[in-house]
Amino acid sequence: MDSLQLYFRAFVILTPPILTEIKSAGALQAQVSQGQSPIGWAVDIIDFKHSHSVNLNDGHSMPVLGFGTHASKEIPKSKAAEATKIAIDVGFRHIDAAYYYENEEELGQALRDKMVDRSVKREDLFYTTKPGEELMPEDANGKVILETVDIRDTWEALEKCKDAGLSKSIGVSHFNHKQLELILNKPGLKCKPTCNQVECHPYLNQSKLLEFCKSKDIVLVVYSALGTQRDPYWVSSDSPYLLEDPVLMTIAKKHNRTPGQVALHYQLQRGVVVLAKSFNEKRIKENFQVFEFELTPEDMKAIDSLNRNFRYSKISFALDHPYYPFLEEY
């Protein structure tokens, strides 16, 4: 284990087998049995007293506003590190990352630098990662190679990570309600998922999935809350620009806020953990100001009415996989 990893423990999110970079549950279990961490970095999860947090079903807590670190491949990895330092200076204490983003080394150094200069303490940070072993392998024709791995087996491997002290909390991503039930109804289940990270914004408000998760004491964590960064690998070029929606712009003007701040606060007011991603210093500061105002019931109703079940990231390369999560209503 290198020195950066000594600073952190892990919060791990499991993606469905069609998306995970883990080839098999056995590979993950092998790493655990050898005393190796299958993840990059993460944190001891302690309530950050200067920000709002939500209690997880395992007794830990998660700041309700997180900083997203994914960037398209043309953006230098150093930009993610620089933005993370700015985010910490602004007040973010929840950092969302993944092995797939290929910038965890830079993020780890950024976090270490901020601890060394005493901007933040180790125990103040909440770091989320998604474990991996191989990045999107492709065949000779450029088609992503997919495998079918039983979700319950992979979940059991993550439980072993938690038992081994490699993770404080474990959760899932992109799961529909039937996939969540597969885990919840698993014989011998030790740990419920603490959260489910999904795409969610006014055009895809995930109201039914949110209610299901609340009924099971699972926190919904949302990405693409501001629409999307429009990476052509994931998102169609003709997708609508969420932050140019007239309803959001009207509400933003009424509150003397930006449409982005309204979209973020909308999620917080629904009881959702929201991730805000920007590498622009001005916007990072604006995104952290979302606790400074409230939306009226009329505002919330108007934003609710924007829902059109529109998904920016359809993960089309996995459409034919038996675990493709988006064929269910929620």
Rank of each mutant, 00 (worst) to 15 (best):
K285G: 11
K114A: 13
I251T: 05
L204H: 09
S3R: 12
E74T: 10
N309D: 15
C195A: 13
F291V: 01
G171K: 00
N309T: 06
P322K: 08
T154H: 05
K85A: 11
F175M: 14
I86R: 11
N176H: 08
Q5C: 10
H321M: 10
A10C: 14
Y203N: 07
H255Y: 15
L264R: 00
Q261E: 09
Y266G: 06
D139L: 03
P240L: 02
D124S: 14
C191N: 14
A81T: 04
T296W: 01
N141I: 01
D44H: 12
F11A: 12
P38G: 07
S37D: 07
Y101F: 03
K121M: 10
M1L: 09
Q29S: 15
G68P: 04
Y233L: 15
L166R: 00
L19Y: 14
G26M: 08
Q31W: 01
R257Q: 14
H50Y: 14
V198N: 15
L158Q: 12
R93F: 02
D58F: 00
Y203I: 01
K162H: 06
L182A: 13
V90I: 13
G108Q: 03
Q261H: 07
R257Y: 07
D299C: 02
I284G: 13
E329T: 07
I218W: 02
S316K: 07
V222F: 08
A81Y: 00
L306C: 08
A30Q: 14
H70T: 09
T148A: 04
S51K: 02
H70S: 09
S169C: 11
L243T: 12
D238E: 06
Y323K: 00
M62T: 01
Q289N: 14
T128P: 03
A27E: 15
I170Y: 05
S61L: 00
D124T: 03
E286P: 06
Y312H: 00
V116K: 08
V90L: 05
S237N: 06
N196S: 02
Y323G: 04
R257D: 08
W155S: 13
K208N: 11
H201Q: 07
R311A: 04
M1C: 13
E294C: 11
V64Y: 00
S236V: 03
E74S: 07
I183M: 04
D47L: 07
A252N: 12
E82R: 09
A80N: 02
A97Y: 00
L111H: 08
D113N: 12
K23H: 12
W234M: 07
D2V: 10
D320C: 00
N256F: 04
R270G: 05
P38R: 06
I95N: 07
A81K: 00
G91W: 05
A30D: 15
L242N: 09
V90N: 02
K143C: 05
L204D: 03
K314M: 08
V116S: 08
E123P: 00
P187I: 03
S215N: 11
L111V: 13
S215I: 03
E147L: 09
L306D: 08
L14E: 14
I170P: 06
R308Y: 00
K168G: 06
A263W: 05
A140G: 03
I183P: 04
G188P: 04
A71I: 04
F279T: 12
I151T: 11
